[in-house]
Design a protein around this nucleic acid. Sequence first.
DNA 1: ATAGATCTTGCACGCGTGTGCAAGATTGGT
DNA 2: ACCAATCTTGCACACGCGTGCAAGATCTAT
Lengths: 355, 355
Amino acid sequence: MATDLCFRYIGSKESHETEMSMDPTTGGVATADDVAKRAGVSRWTVNRAFKPNASISTKSRAKVMAAAEELGYAPDLLAASLASDRSNLVALLIDDFANPHKLQIIEQLTRILRSHGWDTLLVNTLNAADTPSALLAASQRRVDAAVLIGVQFNDQELETALGARRVRKLILFARQSENPNTISICCDDKAAMTTIADYVVGQGYKRPLFVAGPQTTSAHLLRKETFLSRWHHIHTHQPPFVAVSAYDPQLSYQAVADHFRANSDHPDIVVCENDALAMGAIDALRYEFNLNTPNDIAVIGFDDVPQAATPQYQLTTYRQPIVEMVHALVDVLKGTADMATLNQFSGQLVVRTSA
Amino acid sequence: MATDLCFRYIGSKESHETEMSMDPTTGGVATADDVAKRAGVSRWTVNRAFKPNASISTKSRAKVMAAAEELGYAPDLLAASLASDRSNLVALLIDDFANPHKLQIIEQLTRILRSHGWDTLLVNTLNAADTPSALLAASQRRVDAAVLIGVQFNDQELETALGARRVRKLILFARQSENPNTISICCDDKAAMTTIADYVVGQGYKRPLFVAGPQTTSAHLLRKETFLSRWHHIHTHQPPFVAVSAYDPQLSYQAVADHFRANSDHPDIVVCENDALAMGAIDALRYEFNLNTPNDIAVIGFDDVPQAATPQYQLTTYRQPIVEMVHALVDVLKGTADMATLNQFSGQLVVRTSA
DNA sequence: ATAGATCTTGCACGCGTGTGCAAGATTGGT
DNA sequence: ACCAATCTTGCACACGCGTGCAAGATCTAT
């Protein structure tokens, strides 16, 4: 079982003709030893001064901090990570940059993690086969956790990657997985989609079309299945659906346009797996068929991206509690999370005019 | 000069009840020593096997790689960085997540840097005062370079941050700075904006309105100044402008709507510092004043974000060569860049129907 | 076959910090 | 002023790998 994982290594030294100048007094960057000498204490006292709740007198901490400021010292996190085996680093694996919702997640994740002392390694995974390699790269930096918010991966790849190397915690954000070695932080997708389905029924729509995203083999959303089965449960027939190969408005535009051209019996509502698909759908309907929401046709999305609130969309959609979910992620990192509720978050239906 | 920079530290050990299982045979993660023992060579030979162009026989490399695969070994980049003083890590500092162009940059940057062996630390800088703190955090991880693609920072803050700690290379991406310790990788903004101005003149527009972004004290774009002075040079009068506090379509929407409400003499073209502002402007004109492009009014942008090509915008804009610019960044990291041309990139005007 | 050139390998030392322990300093009560 | 309890401090060792050098192994040409 040869793995074609590509190992990272630190390259050989090369020319650095444009480097910034270092501290001239020491000829380099100040280290804890330098500060210790200047403050008249031991190196260990210096490092203690930088650690909250450490056993150190206020007097020596003040001395150390003064000396540190003069020398421009700050603890080296590389050495600290190596010694303590905790990096305070989180890898964020993402692949679908066309989905604006991912930008929201990235923004909140980086902001909140940073405020809690974690830095974020952003890894752009090119495709499903690349995910293990990205996971490996992250593990080589000893990340405390890897967070997957992309779409192109499957449980088997994850299993291989997990077996091969240490990834302390593997977290799926806003997505589910059957893999028991994995932690999912997400909405109760089934409940959310049921809410949408019931809203669609309640509003009296009769002929839905479901627009789904990539049909990955696993770790995918259950939205399509939930909507279709819920609809079947109520109306005793299965509505049609189209699958788009990525959460990309432009691809959704094409897919929806193609479907409408190929089928003469148009739906009265287009239910989309998320807003990225919904926005593409609305554009396609408006500019290809001159169908406007909500008079000619209704559209409903998922995620409540910022663009959903703009006048040209006014998209009815479902908002996930991203901030709460990120705080749950922090709890997971700290080891204080309530594992039972991590995949039970509930958001809310945001009703605008599109449906 | 007290700095209120907040130092990062590695917290104390806590419970890790949900950690992944380690390799049972060794009780932990395989190290080079383990591989060495198994392959019957020394530890140094093992590490050499993972370094291209290292002095090692093909036979022992094969032995090492076989043993490494059996043990799931990969070099520890933390230890490597500490020992070699090169991290192959780049910090990416960003603050304006509302601007879709930043997403494009992030995508290309992470993709291309990774293909060249660099990992990316994404740091969300909350505001101008936060930038030095973010730079400090990056330096604590010994990044090889910090790349600024945000907007909220100024040269003085940078100077302070640079003095305080080591940031090997400070790079401004798609932005200029007067700070000589800084490397700017960007378009020739003056030439680009002159191209736009001349296009606007050539198309016969007479009454432009310029929509500018945040008026930061330095390191900002010269687009407004260039357009206004170019227009003044040709038409001997200074056109009006509005400044938006962030590159956010929604804020642009508001600002443009307010301006149009307050001024009865409407422009015949709205020239925007970038597409984020242009899209907000188009929306405001369409939904607040029922003015459509290009029949009622023209709009021109900058960046050529994906949304600019959609039917509702069809935005005439200027495309920067992002991929080339990222490759230049790689050259800078390698130390092989031609410094003279780094801020001389030229893009192209993309003419659509909006102007 | 042999000397010299070249390739390959092993090693001492260093990178900057965390951990747990034991010695030293300080405090409180009598 | 004295002892015990507490707080504070210093230290040996470890984390995993890079660097430069020198010894060993292999190869080339005569």
